[in-house]
Structure formats: structure tokens, C-alpha cells
Design a protein around this nucleic acid. Structure first.
Lengths: 206, 206
DNA sequence: TATTTACGTTACGATACGTTTCATAATGAG
DNA sequence: CTCATTATGAAACGTATCGTAACGTAAATA
């Protein structure tokens, strides 16, 4: 009788895990990330704030990095209701605005930093960035591929490169901080990319 | 007689600082960054590898972060001799290739990570990123503004936004690692941006 | 009831930070 | 030459943190 069998047959013997403790830990971690930033988060501090023992934290997560990622994912940003009806360019712009609203925040920067600081090849980092990046990137992809099928744009340069051109500058300014993010910046990005890929180039933007 | 006066009048009394120690420290730090990465560099390890005392390190630099930045700056990447004669687009492409050669390395990623992990508002971080970013960014700016003065491109979207579109995707892939950097990627970036800003749009690229 | 698993507290050994103390070294001034 | 000064590396210090072990108690199942 393996453990899997055991679990499927009846509840485990012994004390059950405390969901209240788990939630308190995730909340405490998130608060510390917002107040002190990624570099100052310690398991000790989280344990103290959540009023739990360190062993409890280590029962759920292997290290601080894993806890941090879990904390961000446990408190997901609000998804935007995407309007499927409008023009592709307008939808891309709206989505960019939503991305800026979501990431031009303390939280956004800490998320980006967490992603950057992780070993890119680790399964943990892959899973995290998939979760963080997937929604907006897939929306962008969907907008662009639909526009392509309507003959409005060409994606010759490769959809992945185009998506990077759209989203990377946000991330870049978020992390490097050499210039602020702004709606104007977001519009500039969308304008540049759209001008490049649209099949009927429109010079009236100049 | 202030310290500045003192220094300008005659050599300081007492034992002079050891340039050999300073160089050994910077080299050791750089080696550890290349082998273990930013997150694993400790002052203790640098001191041991450089065969110096910790107080010696702290006499020169206030903390590990400052030392890391100094180590990267002490070993600058080779500057590319820029050919002023070619077409702007080709020069931009060549510069992008050089940027990829320089940054698609262990060192490049550690530099980017160092920049990202620093508090963007600190004077130290500002100075560091200025040093790291200034050369390639100013070259790109120069290429584009010359092309603009020749009536080849328009920079309506703002030169800063355009420069971010060119360089951010490199940084993004370098840090996030969701897809590799490549010459093809670099060409894709330059193509997309060029198509967007050039005044005579050329459709033969599609 | 006994057994099992989870809990928080406490303690542990290891590592690292930034600083102090110390003996020695390396200079310039008198 | 002596003396004063500054730098050096080794050693030590107090503090913080990591990840884990030990412990008494709690909360469940059989």
C-alpha cells in the first residue's frame, strides 16, 4: 500500500496541516516584500510576522526563494476583462495600459526582480515566469495572430521577437529604473511596433 | 590643513596602500562572479581568494555590492571600433551584434543582474548603469540622430523609447532567460525598429 | 487508548556581515 | 637613527540568518 493509495483511501492519520498557518505565512511574506523588498526578506522575519515556527515554513517551501514565488502567485494581480470586439491595435494598447497599471508598482518591480534573480534554467523559475508572463504574453499573441489572419499585420520577424519588443521595454525600465514607466511610453511602444508590422503603413502618425 | 591639502602637498605619512592588494581583490571578485554568480559572492570568499584581510576590502569598498560593481568596471569589455562610414541601418546592426557578443556571456548576465538588483535611486546604481549603458546607448543615439538629420528616419516616438525598444529585449532575454539570445534575434529587433522609423518604408523585407 | 503527523519554541552548527584588536610592515618627517 | 602614522593580514567579536534537530503539546485516525 503506497502513499498514494493511502491518501486515496482515507484521511491521513495525525494532525492535519493548518491552512491558517499557510495563509498567514504567504501574507507575511508578501507584506515584507512590499515593505522591505526582495533582498531583505528572511525566513526568520516571515516566521515572526506570521507567528509561526520556521520548521512550519520549511515544511511547505524549501527556501526563501520558493516562498517568495509562492507569495506572489498566491495573490494574483487582477485579470483584465479583455474586450474581444475592438480593433487589434486598440486592444494591444489597452492591454499595454493594463500591464503598466499592474507592473508599475512596488509589487511589479519585486516580481520582476524575483524572476531575474532566479536561475533561469531551474524548474522553479520556469514555472514562475510561465505563470507571470503567460497571461499577458498569450493575450498579446492572440491579438497579433488574429490581426495576422485578417491580413492586417505580418509577423515575419517572428511572433516571439515581436512579443519581446512589446514587453521587454516595460520590464527593462521596471528593473533598471533609468527612466520612468508611463502611459506615454506604453503608447510609444505600441505605436512603434504597430507601424513596423502593419501591412498598410500609416504615415499620419508622424 | 584639510585632508585634501595634505594630499596635494606631500605624500601621506604611513604605509602606502597596496595596489597589488587592490588588484587582487578586484580579480578575485570577478572570478567568483564568473564562477558562482552574483548571489553567491561573499566578502569572506573574496578575501580568502585574494589572500587579503576583510578589513582591507572594507577600506576600499563599503559592501559587497560596491565591490561587485567595481570589479566589473575594473575589467571593461572591449570597445568596438565603430565604422562611421556605413549606412545607418548597417551600423545599427553591427552595433547590435557587438552588444550581443559582449553581453551574451556569463559576465553579461551577471552585470545585468547586478544592475537590476541595485536600488535604482541610489547614486551608486546610477553611476554603475551610466557606465554600463552609456557607451552602447550613446552609439545607438548617435547613429539614429545622424540618420534623422539625413532625412532617413523619423524619431517621432522619442529617441529614448526607440533606444529602449532596441536594447531592452536583449536585457530581457539575458535576465529572464525564457528564450536565447542570437544574431537572428538581434537582426529581428533591428529590422522591426528600422521598419518602424524609416521614412521610406521598404516592403521587400516581408 | 496508541499512533501518527503538525504545531511553535528552543537550540544547534555553520556561514557571513561589518567591525575591532593586535602585531607587524612600510612609509615620511625630524 | 627614532618616532609617528597609516596599511596590512590574522584573529576575534557580536549580530544575524540559514536549515535542521529536539522537544512538549496539539489534533487527527484507527
Amino acid at each position: 500500500m503506497s502513499q498514494a493509495d493511502f491518501e486515496s483511501k482515507s484521511p491521513r492519520p495525525g494532525r492535519p496541516r493548518s491552512e491558517a498557518a499557510r495563509i498567514a505565512i504567504l501574507r507575511a511574506a508578501h507584506q515584507i516584500l512590499m515593505e522591505d523588498g526582495l533582498g531583505r526578506l528572511t525566513v526568520e522575519a516571515v516566521a515572526e510576522r506570521a507567528r509561526v515556527g520556521k520548521p512550519t515554513i520549511y515544511r511547505y517551501w524549501r527556501n526563501a526563494q520558493e516562498l517568495v514565488m509562492a507569495a506572489f502567485l498566491a495573490d494574483p494581480a487582477p485579470a483584465q476583462a479583455m474586450d474581444d470586439a475592438g480593433a487589434a491595435r486598440g486592444r494591444l494598447q489597452a492591454q499595454m495600459n493594463h500591464l503598466l497599471d499592474t507592473f508599475d508598482t512596488v509589487r511589479g518591480r519585486q516580481i520582476a526582480l524575483t524572476m531575474a534573480a532566479a536561475d533561469p534554467e531551474s524548474e522553479l523559475a520556469k514555472a514562475f515566469r510561465t505563470r507571470i508572463m503567460l497571461q499577458c504574453r498569450e493575450e498579446g499573441r492572440s491579438i497579433l495572430t488574429e490581426a495576422e489572419s485578417r491580413g492586417e499585420v505580418h509577423l515575419t520577424a517572428g511572433i516571439e521577437t515581436i512579443l519581446d519588443l512589446i514587453y521587454a521595454p516595460v520590464f527593462y525600465r521596471l528593473l533598471v529604473g533609468h527612466k520612468p514607466l508611463s502611459r506615454e511610453f506604453g503608447s510609444g511602444i505600441v505605436d512603434l511596433v504597430w507601424t513596423s508590422i502593419c501591412i498598410r503603413p500609416s504615415r499620419e502618425i508622424s
